[in-house]
Design a binder for these strands. Structure first.
Lengths: 230, 230
DNA sequence: CGATTGCTTGACCCCCATCAATCCTCGTGG
DNA sequence: CCACGAGGATTGATGGGGGTCAAGCAATCG
């Protein structure tokens, strides 16, 4: 038995909060809740998603495959995030792949319902618009970083980012995400070995600690400096 | 004396085409036409634009300054393009800088007018939404390229892109844009000298020709191959 | 005309991708 | 319970890509 959207925390965190009670109720009735295990594919590149996903629990990595066949991680989505809106709006197959990096609970909302609300409810469409504007700015920042920063700088930033994003969720529960070295490398945009080498370098400098395969930041200031290239 | 938006080609090429006659008429009355010389600043990073620009004639480069102080060119805007929507929608100062790379004629449309239309006219807001979705996809592609492709591959792509985009405008007039080597390097995301070296390499391989400082592609297939890394 | 700006080329060296070998860890089946 | 295999993590060696500094050259402009 799935919960109602009206009572759901996730829908309070994203554009769905701009919907009226009735609209939310209608979505509540047509949504489908799915459970994914870590490693499961939420959706793949090139498929029609035909809707959007609202993430209840867990985290997924959003990536795109380059011409050489290697995946580049572009984003993460966690509790409260909506994914799939871009493809839905431009009415195309997905240009991205989404894979769970922890066990997940997500709600699928069919396309027609979202489109209808976008066209009827200006608050909602403005909210989505704002969200996309924000994403666009983030993308700009990433491009500049990719173009101008060294791998070391980018890795430092990303360690800080990961620590900020993935510690506790809204309910205060621990988020256990366990990225492989390969994952980390493919966020940074570098070879796995390079990432590993830099990590052990950071460890020597007492910026991070490695317990098992997990990474703990123990000197944020130091990493910040590195990220800026100082 | 400025033309009416209703008769303007540029407004037929962008989201403004979704506006009703009356909406367009109102914009026509409050818009301000500006002329910029090559090198002129349309807007700078960190300023309140308080509206959007609709480009009538000419081309500008859209860039963002990185932490090291170097500009990264993120985009070009030409006849029919709207710029400034992102900052307008998220109600922030501009995160980008726009500089004319040829003489330009642009129309400034004040914020209030656009916001009003976004909130009243669903066709318009959906059109803007689609435009942004497209930009977002392009950004994703660029990030992947930046992360995975070599400077040589990126330069090859960009030469093809520039040739596609900037030869003739809608009226069939030549677009004369004259990018410096530094500009080209800062699209690719590399040092000026590296770009120059690669250009002379491409010339030796008879892929391009250099007449004065202008670059002419004479072997598209060859460049395509290079861009793919073959 | 200097003078400033942009273009070009050379030299140098470091970052990082790649290949290869080893080690570690964990799940599986005997 | 242990052996063993597979995938991930780590470290080493190596070579090339590309960033940086510097000097010479062309072009544009007051």
């Amino acid at each position: 038995m799935s919960r109602k959207c009206e009572q759901c925390i996730a829908s309070k965190l994203n554009s769905l909060k701009s919907l009226s009670k009735e609209e939310l109720f209608r979505i509540s009735n047509c949504k489908k809740t799915k459970f994914l295990k870590k490693g499961g594919i939420l959706f793949d590149q090139g498929v029609h998603i035909n809707g959007i996903y609202c993430i209840q629990k867990g985290v997924c990595k959003v990536s795109k495959m380059g011409d050489n066949g290697r995946d580049q991680i572009l984003n993460f989505a966690k509790q409260g995030d909506l994914i799939g809106e871009r493809s839905l709006i431009s009415n195309e197959v997905s240009n991205l792949k989404a894979i769970a990096v922890s066990n997940m609970e997500v709600c699928f909302i069919p396309k027609e319902e979202i489109i209808r609300d976008l066209e009827k409810n200006t608050n909602f469409s403005m909210s989505v618009l704002k969200k996309m504007a924000l994403s666009l700015k983030k993308s700009d920042d990433i491009i500049v970083d990719m173009a101008q920063k060294t791998v070391k700088q980018r890795l430092a930033s990303i360690l800080l980012f990961l620590e900020d994003q993935f510690t506790k969720d809204e309910e205060g529960e621990d988020i256990e995400i366990n990225l492989s070295r390969e994952d980390i490398a493919s966020i940074v945009g570098t070879a796995t070995e390079s990432a590993i080498r830099l990590l052990s370098d950071f460890k020597k400098k007492r910026l991070i600690e490695l317990r098992g395969r997990k990474i703990f930041v123990i000197n944020r200031k130091g990493l910040h400096k590195l990220a800026r290239g100082l």
